[in-house]
Design a protein around this nucleic acid. Sequence first.
DNA 1: CTCCCTGCAAATCCTTTGCATACAG
DNA 2: CTGTATGCAAAGGATTTGCAGGGAG
Lengths: 137, 137
Amino acid sequence: MLAALREAGCRITRQRTLVIDYLADRDDHPSASQVHAAVVRKDPGISLTTVYNTLATLVHTGQVTEIDFDDDHNRYDTNLEPHLNLVCSRCGSISDLALELPVRPSEVESATGFVTTAVRLEYRGMCSRCGDEEAMP
Amino acid sequence: MLAALREAGCRITRQRTLVIDYLADRDDHPSASQVHAAVVRKDPGISLTTVYNTLATLVHTGQVTEIDFDDDHNRYDTNLEPHLNLVCSRCGSISDLALELPVRPSEVESATGFVTTAVRLEYRGMCSRCGDEEAMP
DNA sequence: CTCCCTGCAAATCCTTTGCATACAG
DNA sequence: CTGTATGCAAAGGATTTGCAGGGAG
């Protein structure tokens, strides 16, 4: 991701490096404040504003996708392949499931003239962990 | 929808009737403030709070789906069948496209233990109208 | 008559913005 | 050096909440 940023003409700063290091290891879908909470531990000076700026930069350079959530906590997804997000309404976790698109964007375009630039597929419900807890009171 | 509300044990008020009347005729996906703007014209006293309350009630009784939008304007969808939303990032219009689900929820459950309660499928991009305007400057 | 619903105002809270300072290239 | 990035504080804005009064059943 650092290389991609550099290619986009962006400067490589300590803060950006920290955010990217954090995101790289992750397949969950952290919110801006989760990212901030994590990186402040490594550099107490880093601001929430910068985390927002960096995430916005990564979104604009196409390295991360923004998922807007019901509760005003946007989440950031580093998985760029089209996939299904399984969103647990109880604990807020998001996991991925690979799949074929239900309709090819080219078909949508020839049928309706709509040009697709981003895809978002979600099933909402309860993850197995939360389901277990609820069943065992 | 009124009947369903009554069955759910909710009271039928003038305000709720107005909101439902407005939604019933609609296949676009209005925001709370659009709904409010429309119903105030028929009853100048109705408050935005009540519109929010009513929409929340309809969501909880399963008659309407909430679509959270990037720009903080939630949108409400009366089409309960699983379908694809084509969201135009330029003008904000949303149109529907019927389709088969990419993965059956029962398959998701047996594979991952995740129990699906709601489905949300979106392609974002540019609608044909906006595409035409942009091509013709 | 009771309790739910309404509506006003104020609060909430994530996210942006303005601007002076710091630092990557 | 120069212009981008940072970070603080304050603004922004849709949605929620608290609470007194009103009306459905």
